[in-house]
């Protein structure tokens, strides 16, 4: 599904990613861990198409397409989803209008008719339940005045609406209390199928108690320095990132 080869990316001349290799297949959950500043969020942003970053070398293929040539909206329409670490507040744009536009743009891309108002509302209702969102949330402007937990739930809600093939969740656990963490993780688990894949980016092992990964990768200084099964996360928790820093 996703094939990253020797990917280099920089911002304002400063190299952040220094040769990433990663393969993700349908049905898999990958966790990317690593200390602060190792390039985790940059990798997520580059894959989603943030133009702040310049890809200087390497390739990324998504479902057989050259991902790096596509606009952010085309990547999304093909089924790539980025759950933001810091979801952006957009005053004046209602959640309903935002999601309706997104869904219908995706449908247009897939040569489908726009969803009727009633079907859309029905879909909203269904998906809200997945992340236990109260109805009031959706009548508000996108993320405006949302608490940290609400913002993250809202990311998973959007993921549920758009049904991506590949979801990249950037520090979705940061700033969550234990209840919100459980709700968010449950949401992600409910959306798992053998046809889609998830990349979970996290600093802590905690989230991986709820979203159990098939693979764990450690990103350090812009490179994946270690890959293994889920037991690697526990080892990291126990030994700390200094254990990695000493080796690389």
């Amino acid at each position: 599904m996703l094939e990253i080869n020797n990917l280099y990316a920089s911002i304002e001349g400063k190299e952040i990613l220094k040769g990433i290799n990663l393969t993700v297949n349908p049905g898999e959950v990958h966790a990317i861990m690593g200390p602060n500043g190792s390039g985790k969020s940059t990798l997520a942003a580059v894959l989603a198409g943030r133009d702040l970053f310049e890809v200087t070398e390497g390739s990324a293929e998504f479902l057989g397409n050259n991902l790096l040539e596509l606009s952010p909206e085309d990547r999304a329409r093909m089924g790539l989803f980025l759950g933001f670490q810091y979801p952006v507040e957009i005053p004046g744009v209602s959640m309903v209008n935002f999601m309706k536009t997104a869904i219908n743009e995706q449908r247009k891309y897939n040569n489908l008719e726009p969803l009727s108002a009633s079907d859309f509302l029905k879909l909203m209702r269904e998906k809200k339940e997945i992340v236990e969102i109260t109805s009031s949330l959706t009548n508000r402007s996108v993320n405006e005045g949302f608490s940290g937990g609400e913002k993250k739930k809202n990311e998973i809600f959007q993921m549920a609406m758009l049904e991506p093939k590949l979801a990249i969740l950037d520090e979705t656990d940061s700033g969550l209390d234990i209840d919100a963490l459980r709700i968010v993780a449950n949401g992600v688990n409910k959306l798992r199928t053998k046809h889609n894949a998830t990349i979970v980016i996290t600093h802590y092992q905690r989230l991986l108690d709820y979203i159990v990964p098939d693979y764990v990768h450690v990103l350090y200084k812009g490179k994946i320095v270690k890959s293994s099964g889920k037991e690697l996360a526990l080892e990291l928790e126990e030994k700390g990132y200094d254990w990695i820093k000493e080796q690389y």
Binding site: A48, F98, E105
Partner: peptide
């Protein structure tokens, strides 16, 4: 905000419009 909107599959011109 423009990037956030586009990352949900909404075209640049439509994102600007929003």
């Amino acid at each position: 905000a423009l990037f956030y909107i586009r990352s949900r599959g909404i075209a640049y011109t439509e994102a600007r419009q929003l």
